[in-house]
Amino acid sequence: MIEFVLNGRQVRFSGNPLTRLIDVLREDFGLTGTKEGCGEGECGACSVLRNGKLTTSCLIPVGAVCGDEIVTIEGLRETEQGKCLIDCFAEAGAVQCGFCIPGMVMAAQALLLCNSHPDEDDVRLAISGNICRCTGYDLIVDAIIMASEKGAGLW
């Protein structure tokens, strides 16, 4: 039995501990906001927070998160920080096909948690593990900087 905290709730998983975290999130907990873009740690679409740090959920077995705190987009979107980020992504025009975006929002949250006033270079570095094939990134960078300004004090 694996126990961990998922979006603020204590949860249990009784299946194979080698199951990828992404599959447990999507299939067992129905949290489909976490996307699979590559399944090999290259695209960041499956990003979640593990104890506040950005993690690709396609690469870790659920057994490894025993006792950890996992936050997915479904958890983040209920918070003031999450709402601010999502709102700024929409406002800045950062969303196109959207498939990468939940992962981008998670990456942005991970950045702002440790640096609440990032500059453009900080932002580019923070999302460099997240591939977006649509936007060319400029408007995503704008969105994250906008969030850090509009949401001043939230992080």
Binding site: T32, T34, V95, G98, I101
Partner: peptide
Amino acid sequence: IRRIDAIEKASGKAKYLCDI
């Protein structure tokens, strides 16, 4: 204006084929 699908997508609510 804002794209009409932006919030739905950014908040992870949009359903892609893999989510169905």
